[in-house]
Design a protein around this nucleic acid. Structure first.
Lengths: 338, 338
DNA sequence: ACTGGCACTCGGACGCACCGAGTGCCAACA
DNA sequence: TGTTGGCACTCGGTGCGTCCGAGTGCCAGT
């Protein structure tokens, strides 16, 4: 039931407010946009928009600012995704291409995203369970000491020390390594538990204990929620927030330091499409005045992890979404190549 | 030459200022410390301390605050290192003991240190070049694709993808792996370059190119300055700084995001003893109103990396130094055990 | 349905006076 | 010589009253 023009007014308010960070009034609006109507008309429209809950007045005699609901409408109906300029695209590619290993890829991605959006960037490492096994290595470091190394197709490498219940011969080790790999290489980590279930039974009783220990360590490593890692960056961009600092950024910094919170935040994003969570849509209360733009990325069609940015609700949604989408694509490519 | 009592006055000023965050006057000083003299006398002493540059007045009619020089004297002569309480010690041990791999150790250490000192914590990963080789693994992922995995005695694991100039047989691979390990295991990474120099010459000409490629990748991984990694945490503690926020923490957050800056900062610390850099003693200009307390840690007697905290010059030096030292010791133990 | 006009609101900026913590100096004292 | 109490002075912070103007809601007119 909002007329076309009213939507136009809302769009104008969002754009102006994002630009100036100040409440926008009817007069300023008509001056800066070609709405074809007078300030009085705009005032009427604003009154309606306010009734509907899309905008609000911080003070009786001030201009309007968008509410979370207003931003939501803006993102859903009024804004596109702004594609990056081609120099930007080239810069991304150059920057990511130099990466030498997965840590490097993730680190560069975080910095890139933070710089591009001028906001806080969050990048999740490719999930183990959603990746496929490239190789499982077992190294003997001491007679009863093994190191387990898992390598995914996305380049992620996890290692665990294992203390064996009994010494484990070099022959048994080679045997276990070979059998393990023949079963799991190329499979998804999520399927590994089933694939190795009866493996211990085929070993001599003296080795069985060690094999079980190895396998249980392997399975522990794959527990979802635990195996997730992430990297954040660009926190200094928080200082651009508002002038009412401390109270604003303290909870955000605190939330960002809790991996659990961040993982949940990213987890809420749908796998495929880009997800935008605005203000109070975020469950965590430290983040009620921030928005999260996140999207999955992967080496193939399936997402192996997510990345995104956290910024004030008053952000440039089209631009941010464009940057996030573009970076996710390039990272996917890089991973596929490695 | 400052008399004993003047030093006592300085100590009192530092302690009070650190506690209250407010300039301290002569009256308040005599009330809160048993100096045995009247405010008037303290005023005279303060005038001298100010002449000597140890304290300063923010405004003509305000109390005094310590200068960097004042803190320096305090740290060098007046303050000890406050040992942790035994519950604290136990908490540290419990917290660190659950770590499952090196990333986990470093991550927990950062959180621990941040929580203990209520400041920003920085922990460097054990340097490759200063560690010894536990194992070098070469995996064949595709006919002309290898993965190189380096494992240190501190638990650090680095991996690199290698595209070979020519296919590399399984036999040659096993050969190279064996020869490589027999030369370098147990040696310091810093010595590896010499130890592998003439290795390619002992291979068939068809494999020589690949071997060289592997070795040069290995050496690249060991380049100092590049191989250093670190983790930071506790940035939300910055919000406790002062009330003149934005201007204060912006440059600090920016500095913290530049690994180079941080590495240089830690690098300036002496290896063995604890180093305290106060305010302008830090070269980086974003950090001129912060202090850095850092110390080396290692699995043996030798430091393999450094850790420390960054906080306002107005910090609790004895407590901070105590926490940093204690954490460094425990981390060293943990690494030695793994 | 839109527009111009008008009275009203209220937050922010400005000016001013006051208060009090803190200082420096000095004369007196041990 | 070092310490002390007394005293005049400084100056940042706070509270208060005023003023200004952007912005609003409403209404009558087109």
């Amino acid at each position: 039931m909002l007329s076309e023009r009213r939507l136009e007014v809302l769009r104008a308010i969002v754009q102006d407010y994002v630009g100036t960070e100040e409440p926008v009034g009817s007069k300023a609006l008509t001056e800066r946009h070609q709405l074809g109507v007078s300030p009085a008309t705009v005032r009427n429209d604003m009154a309606v928009l306010e009734d509907e809950g899309f905008i609000a007045q911080p003070h009786t005699s001030a201009g309007r600012i968008p509410t979370d609901k207003g931003y939501r409408l803006f993102v859903d109906k009024l804004a596109g995704v702004k594609p990056l300029s081609s120099p930007e695209r080239r810069a991304i590619q150059n920057f990511l291409d130099g990466a030498v290993d997965l840590d490097d890829v993730v680190g560069r991605t975080v910095r890139l995203l933070a710089q591009l959006t001028r906001q806080v960037a969050v990048v999740q490492y490719p999930s183990l369970t959603r990746s496929t096994v490239r190789h499982v290595e077992l190294l003997s470091l001491a007679p009863a000491r093994l190191m387990l190394v898992l390598i995914t197709d996305t380049g992620r490498v996890e290692q665990r020390m294992i203390d064996c219940p009994a010494p484990f011969g070099e022959a048994s080790l080679a045997d276990l390594r070979a059998r393990l790999n023949s079963r799991v290489v190329g499979r998804r980590f999520a399927d590994v538990p089933q694939l190795v279930r009866e493996l211990p039974e085929s070993f001599d009783s003296e080795d069985r204990g060690t094999v079980s220990t190895v396998l249980s360590t392997l399975l522990e490593t794959l527990v979802e929620e635990t195996e997730e890692r992430l990297m954040i960056g660009g926190t200094s961009n928080l200082t651009r927030f508002g002038h009412d600092f401390p109270v604003m950024i303290r909870p955000v910094l605190e939330a960002l330091e809790e991996q659990v919170v961040l993982l949940k935040l990213l987890g809420e994003a749908t796998d495929s499409a880009m997800t935008v969570r605005i203000g109070h849509e975020n469950a965590h209360e430290g983040l009620t005045s921030t928005s999260v733009v996140a999207v999955g990325y992967g080496s193939g069609d399936e997402a192996v992890a997510k990345l995104g940015v956290v910024g004030p609700t008053r952000m440039d949604y089209p631009g941010t979404m464009g940057a996030v989408r573009a970076v996710a694509r390039y990272v996917g490519q890089i991973l596929a190549e490695s």
